[in-house]
Amino acid sequence: MNRSWSFIAGVLATILFSMMGLIFVPNWQFEQLKPVVDQNGISHPTPPAGSVLLGREVYISEGCLYCHSQQVRSADFGADIQRGWGTRRSVARDYIFDRPHLMGTMRTGPDLENIGARQPSREWQYLHLFNPQITSPGSIMPPFHFLFKVVDKGGPAPVGSVDLTANASPTKKASYLVPSGRAQDLVDFLMSLNHSYDLPEAHQ
């Protein structure tokens, strides 16, 4: 190993080999995947757009992915399905529109691949995001106060606001919780996380 060029060639070969196997071939395989169309003519998955896409940005920017995965494991690998995190395993086709992928590697909190199906209540999402202790006492999820405004009750309820009971409110008075635009986008995104449609390859 005394000639640098042959050494470099060897070193390059190893990495290009693995790049081939772990990036290019999988990418080529996944590029063949197309959305499926169900009986009602709706195609799945759908590309995120509008507020869902904006909400995805908020999800990334607030770093939700460090505590939440977005992938359901199969029925014989963990208890994801029994926990109600999904009705079937996730497969590569579910992610064809994901840029970047948000699969995650930690489950400090529950998986969110199907949170839109599991928790369809916007109100719950707002209360939980504002302060997880309200809906999930003992949670270690951080509060996202800065995505909300708290308005005293008295005037008319601001559009899109939800009720905050006195003990949940930081002012200790019954109030309205007004989500900011970003909070609304984020919840739109969470609502859109619903991969309950069926895929042929997902039954293994």
């Binding site: 772990l22 999988p26 990418n27 996944f30 995947l33 064809i96 840029r99 992928h101």
Partner: peptide, 19 residues
């Protein structure tokens, strides 16, 4: 470069990421 130029996306972005 591979993901940001759009050459790799979706689940292959995840393999790239962990590679």
């Amino acid at each position: 470069l591979l993901p940001t130029t759009g050459m790799v996306g979706g689940a292959a972005w995840a393999t790239t990421n962990w590679w």
